[in-house]
Design a protein around this nucleic acid. Structure first.
Lengths: 105, 105
DNA sequence: ATAAACATGTTTGTGTTGTAAACTTGTTTT
DNA sequence: AAAACAAGTTTACAACACAAACATGTTTAT
């Protein structure tokens, strides 16, 4: 019955990267967060956070608004519907993986 | 309550690659498999399978014995204790991830 | 016998990735 | 004015995943 290993590779690679899963997980729960907050929360370097956010944005998973908080530039991130769906899909994927690999070992 | 998202990045990257998780999952359940069997089962190309097996072997997660089946070369793979432990650890990791991201969305 | 096809892997080439370091632009402090 | 700080972005680079090409040998057709 368990011969269905192949679907393990059926994964959203963008979210499969833990740093980005972390970002999306935060954005799913708060619905809005700025760059500084995300950096503190994730512990990522600014460079990496920047790259990951750009990637998520290009995929349409998040929206990025650039504004100013007084004179200080501010980058505000918000998950999109597409992003939320992708997140939920990935969560289901993970659950199915856990089940699949739990019959062994 | 603030979850510790940061532990999401605490992952065995070698196993986090779905192709290799697939290979390990098979090897955990059968305890011994040759190259051809693995290729059929995983659907990977021979080239990729070769590279992944080498990588798993270099990490000490599997043992590879090269023999002959009659005149035909045969590569037999077997998971090691280290590999099995890593697999089980990864499984626990995945479970914890599912829990962590399930309180949101 | 000799060429063609097959079998089992490995190596090479290529485009992508994740990460830290260096950089940019502007603001605040000294 | 200079130095330090803040918020991001860009660059440099080693590692990666993958498929195509290669290598080595065996079997089948002619």
């Amino acid at each position: 019955m368990n011969e269905d290993w192949r679907t393990l590779t059926d994964v959203d690679k963008l979210i499969h990267e833990p740093s980005r899963l972390m970002i999306l997980t935060i954005l799913v729960s708060v619905e809005k967060a700025d760059f500084v907050y995300l950096q503190r929360e994730t512990g990522l370097t600014r460079g990496n956070l920047s790259v990951h956010l750009t990637k998520l944005s290009e995929a349409g998973y998040i929206d990025i608004q650039k504004t100013f908080n007084g004179k200080v530039p501010q980058t505000i991130c918000q998950i999109t519907d597409t992003g939320k769906q992708a997140f939920l899909r990935y969560r289901e994927y993970l659950k199915s993986v856990v089940e699949k690999i739990s019959t062994s070992g």
